[in-house]
Design a protein around this nucleic acid. Structure first.
Lengths: 265, 265
DNA sequence: GGGTATTTGTCCGTATGTATT
DNA sequence: AAATACATACGGACAAATACC
């Protein structure tokens, strides 16, 4: 019933970290020092550090050392907004925006517009046939300069043919795609549904967000399907957020405003 | 700039898995066979397998072998419900319940009731002083017999002193705590707010959910704060769900019912 | 139940490569 | 250029879990 040695070493280091003896950002002793301290081989010490790494407690930097990870101040996104407001996309539009309640600066790239064939998962959610032409509008978002989310909105190609030509321009649509589609096509967004899942990041996502290449930090994937007045899906927005720097809020009924200071742990 | 050998081996195995050549549940060749096949040492093969393990593609069983993981059919929980309905807790109450839209059987343990001192995070969310007496009601939930969530609701001790004595009984409160508190204390739940985050599981959670001891499968942690007609928090429910078997839905505005068949990937 | 073969898990020592300072 | 620290790779030995006879 006794634990293997590398786990005991990991436990010991873990207690030092969680008790605050080793604060975030602090450097651990080197592998050779730990090897002498615990009377184990260097490989066993490395097994202990690897364990702490997958637990997300430390990170190693070649040529420098092993460091206690510092927690990221999470950004909180509210998913329940007025369905007729600009709340089609998650988060604000392009350009710089200041979130005053959380005191953060949000920036977005201009949308990258592509014409694609609908993949199965997109087609199903938009109730169109697989392989049909769709418009894809992709944006990258940053908060305080660090990568925060990747967002892609899909619209049926039909919308452009019917006159909503701004959908295929690589510019921000002001004051919002919801009101633009309402006036251009008489499509009124009466509501939307979000589906939230967590999965391992793709390689490109891991690179963009600077996540470790192994999948130990997951990403939220949120599928937002917006519906028009005939209850048909009119837009699908897929947004990917790393789980290590994002939290979400859902308000139901009549609730007081959110106070960020009540959140931490 | 060439990849290390263990990553190349991992890449090769990964392609076999993702191409379908190695279907879920299938056993990989043994470490000794792979060692001969790739002309590497056993430890290098083990590094490759460890990499695939943290990617969540394979799992190893001592004495048996290494297997391709099979994806779990996720259970979908809707977070937006009528705030005045029974939707105080997330998911149904005790006893067995059939979810007909998803064709699943949900069971819960009887609540485990404790009187505790409020921790800082609980006190902040309930707007009470840290260390004040609170009631904790804890339940474990299963779907189709497998562990699905751990839920704890917190109420101020004051509620019992004012007459809501059923809160400290280790029984289900029918038809629901919302209506019970409404009639016993004239507390009307007018809304609630959910805060969703993802973190590594605690050790006890990893054991209950049969998650790997390292933290590579995270858990959703949902803090649901319910508010009464004076906009004061009246209840805090904390629920923990493994991310590998749970998804969530949020409906805003007027939307058609959810069709589980549109979900997969 | 016992014994044996198989398979993964742990631990060691050593050598060399690579990134950083 | 040199020193330092982590990364990769090898080979070997024994332990622990499981399956099978």
């Amino acid at each position: 019933m006794t634990n293997p040695m590398y786990r005991q070493i990991a436990e010991d280091l873990r207690e030092q970290i969680e008790s605050g003896g080793l604060p975030p950002g602090h450097q651990l002793r080197t592998e050779l020092e730990l090897r002498e301290h615990y009377g184990a081989s260097r490989n066993t010490v490395r097994d202990a550090i690897k364990w702490l790494t997958t637990l997300g407690l430390v990170e190693t930097k070649p040529g420098q050392g092993t460091f206690v990870v510092s927690k990221i101040n999470p950004y909180v996104t509210t998913l329940t907004a007025d369905p007729k407001g600009p709340g089609g996309d998650i988060g604000p539009a392009s350009d710089a925006v200041a979130d005053e309640t959380q005191n953060r600066i949000i920036t977005s790239t201009d949308p990258q517009v592509e014409i694609q064939k609908a993949q199965a998962s997109v087609a199903r959610r938009l109730s169109i046939t697989e392989g049909a032409q769709i418009i894809s509008r992709h944006q990258r978002r940053y908060i305080d300069g660090t990568p925060w989310s990747l967002q892609t909105s899909f619209y049926p190609m039909e919308f452009v043919l019917k006159g909503a030509s701004r959908l295929i321009q690589a510019d921000d649509i002001q004051p919002g795609t919801v009101s633009y589609l309402a006036e251009a096509l008489d499509l009124q967004q009466v509501g939307y549904r979000d589906l939230i899942k967590v999965r391992a990041p793709e390689v490109t996502e891991a690179i963009f967000f600077s996540l470790p290449q192994d999948g130990r930090v997951g990403v939220f994937e949120i599928f937002r399907t917006a519906f028009d007045q005939t209850y048909m899906p009119m837009r699908l927005t897929v947004t990917v957020f790393p789980t290590d720097r994002n939290e979400f809020i859902i308000n139901v009924g009549d609730v007081p405003p959110f106070d960020p200071s009540t959140d931490d742990t």
